[in-house]
């Protein structure tokens, strides 16, 4: 009876690689794919090492180096903690940008409301003063262009962050560690003084003045 090992020896190296690569097509999960590629490299190494030609030995060495590079790349990527970037830093940056856009819109709205009141007030003022006031109001309108421009710049940054997130997802999937659907809950630990320095809270998440007053009785 012919064993699998005997059959492997009988087929050419090219046939052997083709047969193993055919199986890869059935594997959809990134991690399995990665593991299968490493297995193939190892299997090819074993095959090549059993043959003695100098050329094939060089190929084996190259493949061995390649496997080492892949392993090191995986360790390097893991060391930058892509899950943290994906689940904490990027959502935080997105939230802050959203809050900036919201504050800008609110502040610009208030400025424009005030300008419109000033324009009405100008109607009841002496001509010279009225004209001067309207000139000032016009300059404020012109300056309020900033809202549109900054809004578009913020959108560009948000789009860039989304692109970074997509690439991190792809990287994590390729490494066999796809991003979780829900952000991982990190266990609570006592707050340090540094933990308390968070700057302005995103809209709707901070403590209101009334709530603070209530804490003081």
């Amino acid at each position: 009876m012919t064993s699998q090992r005997d059959r492997d020896r009988q087929e050419s190296l090219e046939q052997f690689i083709d047969r193993r690569l055919d199986n890869v097509g059935d594997i959809s999960h990134g991690g399995q794919l990665f593991a299968e590629v490493v297995k193939i490299i190892q299997a090819v190494l074993e095959r090549v090492q059993s043959q003695v030609s100098a050329k094939e030995r060089r190929i084996a060495e190259e493949l061995e180096t390649l496997a080492g590079v892949i392993e090191r790349a995986k360790v390097d990527v893991e060391s930058v903690r892509p899950h943290d970037i994906r689940s904490h830093h990027l959502p935080l940056a997105n939230g802050e940008l959203g809050a900036i856009a919201s504050h800008l819109e609110e502040a610009t709205g208030t400025i424009l409301d005030t300008c419109e009141e000033l324009e009405k007030l100008a109607e009841s003022m002496p001509d010279e003063a009225s004209e001067k006031l309207l000139e000032c109001v016009t300059r404020i309108y012109e300056a309020c262009n900033f809202h549109d421009i900054t809004g578009q710049r913020i959108k560009k940054v948000v789009d860039t962050l989304e692109a970074v997130e997509t690439r991190i997802d792809a990287l994590l999937t390729a490494l066999g560690d796809p991003p979780a659907e829900e952000p991982e809950q990190t266990p609570k630990k006592p707050l340090t003084d540094e933990d308390l320095l968070n700057g302005p809270a995103p809209p709707g998440t901070g403590t209101t003045q009334d709530e603070i007053d209530a804490l003081f009785g």
């Binding site: 016009t138 262009n145 809202h147 549109d148």
Partner: peptide, 17 residues
């Protein structure tokens, strides 16, 4: 025509002037 309501207000007010 503008998707920023602020810009609509600014242009409208400048046109009124």
């Amino acid at each position: 025509v503008d998707d920023y309501k602020t810009m609509l207000r600014i242009i409208r007010n400048l046109l009124r002037q």
